[in-house]
Nucleic acid binder design. Sequence first.
DNA 1: TGCACGATCTCG
DNA 2: GAGATCGTGCAT
Length: 175
Amino acid sequence: MIRLQRDFFTRDALKVAPELLGKSLVRRFNDTISEKYLITEVEAYCGEEDLACHASKGRTTRTEIMYHNGGLVYVYLIYGMYWMLNIVTSVNEIPQAVLIRGIKGFNGPGKLTKKLNIDKSFYGEDLTNSDRIWIENIEGLNDLKYKTTPRIGIDYAGEWKHKPWRFILSEKSDH
DNA sequence: TGCACGATCTCG
DNA sequence: GAGATCGTGCAT
């Protein structure tokens, strides 16, 4: 198992998102407790022109982190009670992120952050050197099958709501 | 300073 | 189908 490095994240969100499927999300709580979860569902949000992306409102206190280099964590509160876990992608000044919507055994972005005890304190965390959250490659799991659908909960995004930028790992693969 | 609105979830 | 619940962005 090898922790994903900077170069994995500093690419376009549409390239990174499907490749995150089948990777292992690691949450380390202390010296003896670490938990690993297979990533099964993600969504890509691509820049200021993407009306579904929070960065479509420009650079604000909340979206600032998306303007940084890939590999950082973007966390925000939605509906007053759920923390959403996102991973910043692309390079400086290009605001993109991938929302982690589901992990094996726990579908739903709000449920997984509650399960992993992830909150605003993770905003800006660096996945390439954090000691409490990172992502690992699982040897032999590559080019997995997945399907795409439009993203969830963004009816306000006009034409952008139709983009097939939600990626779901298929139940069965040839591997 | 105030207010409308969510990249959700659970229960009925 | 509706309610819970609050930080953020933008209008006052």
